[in-house]
Amino acid sequence: MDSKQKDFTISLVLVALGIYTTIEGIRIYIKASKAPYNIDSFAISPGLLPTILGALLLILSLVLMTKSLKNGNFLIRIKQLLTWAREAVFDSDIRMMVGGMVIMGIYAFLLIGLIPYYLSSAVYLASLMLFLRASSFLKTILVAIITIALVILLFQTGFNVSLP
């Protein structure tokens, strides 16, 4: 993806976000003008800044989009985006990054809280390092255990805080 194509892709998302925020800002104003808040002036409504920011975001991201369309129109850009997405699935770097993020995500969303902290962390560390082929199996396990031990020592004994 070249930088213009990146700008285009992200401006698509930003325009959508800008529209949503502006509408939501106005909805906040309408809701706040009723009981129990009864704030009937827009200037002091909690919807004021969200509406302004939403509109600003919309304007700025439209500027960004027009700039990114200098060579190539809207439809061509969309087509390029789809081709890129198809190719990305086979890109080894992207696969590595996504795979790593999935392991991190499972750890952050599921493992913590499900099983004791040191166990979840050890499982996470070892599996991510193995996935990345960072080192040999033996060394990886050792590094994981030593790290967890050090972390628990530092935080629980040293700083006296309780971990998740």
């Binding site: 004791p116 040191y118 166990l119 050890a122 396990i141 255990i145």
Partner: peptide, 10 residues
């Protein structure tokens, strides 16, 4: 050994 250690700690 590692599994045993973890289980013990658990």
């Amino acid at each position: 050994f590692v599994v045993l250690l973890l289980a013990l700690g658990f």
